[in-house]
Design a protein around this nucleic acid. Structure first.
Lengths: 209, 209
DNA sequence: GCCAAAGTTATGCAAACGTATAACAAGAGG
DNA sequence: CCTCTTGTTATACGTTTGCATAACTTTGGC
């Protein structure tokens, strides 16, 4: 009786990805309290015990989920970079526009991000992941800004560039957060155009088409 | 033995307020998962059963808490505006600086804000409250920007001012969120100075001292 | 001063939580 | 075809959770 459930081995990368995806889905859909080990396992098509086999604790899984989300957002913004020409200004323009366009914008990413931010102030692992991913994005932006200014024959002072990257990063973050939180109010606003216009004045460097 | 604990009747309004305050404190300090009925009751100086006497369910209490929080934040922000001097540029400068300074900055405010934001995408009531408070803040900023530009003898185009307010609001939000989330990376950065510098370029209007 | 109403406490319970441990079975190596 | 490894399931434990219920105690009205 009670035949043991049959299964297939999926390998570490696939299983970790499945568990992280399930966690993302559940948090986005029902908040962190909906992402119980049992619900995550059920959605990933495995039994709860397997979570412990790949993540030493649930906190680990949540931290890995946040890392996946943040790197995913950064990659989404940078994905089109390779398709762009070598022109540094066009590259900066594409990066900014992609950062405030779908799929980065969208209530799903927002809910996940907000859930993670709530843990950052008091969970050391989450803080570490967040610091690393935040800085990765900012340094990417900083490099693009530096290249663009240099190409425009502008002096490149590292402290100034750093300040530009911090402010620019904050501008991007604020824009996509607010747009995702209130889609109704931003539906008819051209967010990329607004972001590029603001960046142009921020850097005193024309970025609009 | 085990003498029953003595108590005083406090009335509905006082008890409800005490329970809501306790919930706020606990969520700010330890996140929603720290706000258990037992912890809330302990902090409010009552026993857990009393919560059920004033709120039919814990969800009721949490909803009442968020409503209290949001309206409180709006009132606090509005109150600050009246303390600023008459000079439009000084008013704008003071508003920006205050928006990226304590107590707005700080992990406590961040945790509360993140807890609320996380509910916005899937809770209609929260979305309504958030929209109202966000727009109230943005319109204040828009008015201050408009006054400052007018005082500087600059043309005031309403569409442009609106875009400036959206971008400025995003910049402020992004800055205080990131500073609150990663205090270690921002503790030696003069956030008000950075914000004012960025705003100066954004508006092409000198705001620094 | 007593009585009824209601505010408050005390106790208990069923369910769900994260985690630990052991049994099993699938798939690769020989 | 067999065997060993380990990915995976199954079961269980202790804790904590939200909630229900009954007992008690304060307070205001008569």
């Amino acid at each position: 009786m009670s035949a043991r459930r049959s299964f297939q081995r999926a390998g570490e990368v696939a299983r970790r990805a499945a568990l992280i995806d399930a966690t993302k889905y559940l948090i986005a859909e029902g908040g962190p309290e909906a992402a119980t080990v049992r619900a995550i396992a059920a959605r990933a098509g495995v039994t709860p015990g397997l979570i412990r086999h790949y993540f030493s604790t649930k906190e680990d899984l949540v931290a890995a989920t946040h890392e996946s989300l943040m790197t995913g957002l950064t990659e989404a913004a940078a994905a089109r970079l390779d398709e762009l020409p070598d022109d540094p200004i066009a590259r900066l323009r594409g990066f900014i526009a992609a950062s405030v366009s779908p799929p980065v914008t969208g209530p799903r990413a927002m809910a996940l991000w907000a859930a993670a931010m709530q843990l950052v102030p008091r969970d050391a692992a989450m803080r570490r992941v967040h610091a690393a991913t935040y800085l990765a994005f900012r340094e990417r932006l900083e490099g693009l800004i530096s290249d663009a200014l240099r190409a425009a024959g502008r002096p490149v002072d590292s402290a100034t560039i750093r300040a530009h990257a911090i402010a620019g990063n904050a501008l991007i973050d604020g824009l996509w957060i607010e747009a995702a939180a209130l889609p109704d109010h931003f539906f008819n606003i051209d967010l990329p155009a607004l972001a590029l216009s603001a960046f142009s004045r921020l850097l005193d460097l024309p970025l609009e088409e």
